[in-house]
Write a protein that binds this DNA or RNA. Structure first.
Lengths: 230, 230
DNA sequence: CCAAAAGTGTTGACCGTACACCCATGA
DNA sequence: TCATGGGTGTACGGTCAACACTTTTGG
């Protein structure tokens, strides 16, 4: 079947988001092959004959971070003729949300990779800047209607941290009273009996994402909906 | 470069939406090649060496409908190993919104294609049912925040038609007073001095999408936002 | 005791939603 | 004159947005 049709190189590129010290970060690698060897790029790789696109994305993410079973979503396929000057390559882009503290630092070093705060991101090869911009758009969309913030924070986190994450994602100051009200009113945060005193002398209460209650609420028709007006 | 990497067949499949006689429709073709010859499927084709994904989608849409420059958006790439039993094929899915009256009926006949009301859609080959469901989800998302309804209606249309379209998309009855209020308040509809009397004896006023005013409004920070609660 | 971050309530404006009757016309 | 679909306005409740001071504690 289909013998006479053209075949193509298919790549998968991963936009890897993290959050640390109050800023949203991006994991980038220094490219080791031509063309554009030595320049910054997204982590990517070619699709194998015997794996699905999702499997390829997981494989590539694991290669660089050591992580599995993290939040990873396809968001767009890029297929312009000249996007890679060396060859005609179709690239399917995925974005991942990971907890920075949990990834494998040694792997990142091996790959000559680095975490960049979003604001300090260098120019990337090919159409990777476009991909990053699209991924951020998608993240913004997701973060309003799904509790994805938790994917980027450690298991225990404070409300000021949580708010700061949203402020990074939307590049905007939020009112802390309104933010707390709306996030707490969802009932998906579990307040712990511990404080985090690294950020202040008074200390901030730690919370945990109550996944079970979230699932429970979903079945009752609840929809996560943080209102952040554009 | 990249000599040792696997190459793949890449297809593009189009979910083609239309709206006619108060129902949302889907343009499907009867497949002419094995496997699954004779079964209903989406219109698709393989990506050529010398065209981008978007170009392939336009080409394939034009092949079947004769239309160019219509609303056409990529929404997902499908890459499961076994999705096509005959070969390993990556498929990039696009959805199109067209005005049924404007398409080329003879082409559709040549291809053994047919418009199906959404509710009467037959089972499709491979993962095409999944694609259709995903496309509808995407259409619902789009229709809330972008004035895509106009892509499916003739240039001049009545408010009852417009409302009926939204009722089809969201599978729900809407209150006509509220619907009119919200759509008219956007200021992107231009009321014409004509009535359409095909639907009733009284006749309904015809409107036209005021594209220029819409663009104008966008620059002023306006965002289309029809509130249709899930 | 002071600096620095955490935490806490109220009000007004706007928006979404619910709801029922009259109008115009051709048959 | 009647059946059919087209068109119209209001009131209530809930949600969003704006806003400033007190608390805690380590240094």
């Amino acid at each position: 079947m289909y013998q006479h049709s053209d075949k193509h190189l298919v790549a998968v590129d991963c936009i890897i988001f993290g959050f640390e010290k109050g800023s949203l970060k991006l994991l980038l690698v220094k490219r080791k092959i031509e063309p554009c060897c030595g320049e910054w790029s997204l982590m990517g790789g070619f699709l194998f004959e015997n794996e699905s696109l999702d499997e390829a994305a997981s494989r590539i993410l694991k290669q660089l971070t050591g992580l599995e079973n993290v939040y990873l979503r396809q968001f767009h396929a890029y297929g312009e003729m000249q996007r890679d000057p060396a060859a005609r390559v179709i690239s399917v882009a995925y974005f991942a949300l990971i907890k920075i503290r949990e990834h494998d630092y040694t792997l990142v070093q091996e790959y000559d990779a680095r975490w960049f705060p979003f604001a300090e991101k260098p120019a990337l090869i090919f159409d990777h800047d476009t991909m990053v911009a699209a991924a951020l758009d998608r993240l913004r969309l997701e973060a309003k209607t799904h509790p994805v913030g938790f994917e980027l924070l450690p298991e225990k986190f404070t409300l000021p941290q949580f708010q700061s994450l949203y402020e990074c994602i939307y590049q905007r100051k939020l009112d802390n009273r309104n933010f707390r009200k709306s996030i707490l009113s969802t009932g998906i945060l579990e307040k712990l009996d511990e404080k985090d005193r690294t950020g202040s002398k008074k200390g901030a209460w730690l919370y945990r994402f109550d996944k079970n209650n979230y699932r429970e609420l979903l079945t009752k028709g609840f929809r996560f909906n943080l209102t952040i007006s554009e």
